[in-house]
């Protein structure tokens, strides 16, 4: 939370819902988030917490006809993204905001060569010189640490390993030097040694280009290592925003605390793991009071009756809990 300059991205009271057979389901509720240029923010939460939907909303990629922004604003460099026309939004995507996904296999087109898919980024944004485009593509591949880049540009996705494919995705996302990169679980499908390479690469790209990053993950260790700021999501809400180093030392929200105690850390064998009883509520469940109260060890009467707001506890720390 840097307050000095105008933030690059400011999400204000954002709520998103999906139309389903059983009615409207709220999947993102009252999210407030700000991100400065060059900052890396981690969005952490378990499956179904709404972290991916939030990023799709920012990208303007909610499924048309079924996903809706009910209220709120997404201000990006001064413009409210949901208010842009489809055409204006496609100008923003790729050039100003780009995204990488979890599954590098399904995100690349299997019938085009790597080079062709990279070239396309430039073509779509108006550069038609084929030779120059290919040169730029090869240079990009080199920058993300792909050996024999010219040769790899001629190969097809299936010929590359998962780690290499994710590097290609990063190259594609960074092609037009966007101001914001959204990375949705980019290392979840990868082995730890490859994950370490990719994390270092994302960090390096962000620092070199001054790109802000929203890094989505369910892995607290990854988030703590890479990010400056962490937002913890639970059941479609942000329950805590805090500094990455503070996340482990002094987590504020009871959910964050329990979540940290659930993860076996190297060096703590022998101690019994904490577990959070019960399961994450369905996003559509209307819960009076705090959405974590049914599973919270500290919950009292008020927690079950009144929904807490996200409140500022200290410099850089916000928490949605009555007891803090």
């Amino acid at each position: 939370m840097k307050n000095n300059a105008a933030p690059l991205l400011e999400i204000k009271d954002l709520s998103v819902s999906f139309r389903t057979e059983s009615g409207r389901v709220s999947v993102v509720r009252d999210v407030n988030l700000t991100l400065a240029a060059g900052e890396i923010i981690g969005l952490v939460g378990e499956s179904g917490s709404g972290k991916s939907v939030l990023s799709f909303a920012v990208m303007g990629l909610l499924p048309p006809g079924s996903g809706f922004i009910d209220s709120g604003e997404i201000l990006f460099a001064g413009r409210n993204l949901p208010a842009l026309s489809r055409r204006e939004m496609s100008g923003v995507r790729g050039r100003e905001i780009s995204m990488i996904f979890q599954e590098p296999m399904t995100s690349l087109n299997p019938v085009y060569s790597i080079g062709a898919q990279l070239d396309e980024v430039f073509v779509n944004h108006g550069d038609r010189d084929r030779k120059a485009n290919r040169k730029r593509s090869i240079k990009l591949l080199e920058r993300v640490g792909i050996p024999r880049a010219a040769e790899i540009a001629r190969s097809y996705p299936h010929q590359l390993s998962g780690g290499m494919r994710q590097r290609v995705m990063i190259a594609m996302a960074m092609a037009l030097s966007p101001k914001l990169l959204i990375a949705d679980e980019p290392t979840t499908a990868l082995d730890v040694t490859i994950q370490a390479q990719i994390l270092r690469l994302i960090e390096q790209m962000a620092r070199e280009n001054g790109t802000a990053v929203i890094f989505i993950s369910h892995n607290l260790g990854v988030i703590a290592q890479l990010c400056d700021v962490v937002a913890v999501m639970y059941s479609s809400q942000i329950v805590e925003i805090t500094g990455a180093e503070r996340l482990y030392q002094s987590p504020a929200h009871p959910y964050t605390k329990s979540l940290l105690e659930c993860v076996p850390q190297i060096g703590m064998s022998g101690k019994r793991l904490n577990s959070i009883e019960g399961t994450v509520p369905h996003p559509g469940d209307e819960i009076s009071g705090c959405r974590f109260a049914p599973r919270c060890g500290e919950a009292e009467g008020r927690c079950r009756e009144q929904a807490p707001e996200l409140r500022r506890l200290a410099e850089g720390v916000c928490c949605r809990c009555w007891k803090r």
Binding site: A196, A224, Q225
Partner: peptide, 17 residues
Amino acid sequence: LSAVPAPGGAVGEQIIL
């Protein structure tokens, strides 16, 4: 082991393969 992400950096010096 060094590749396992952990708070405040990995266990020991991180070796990136």
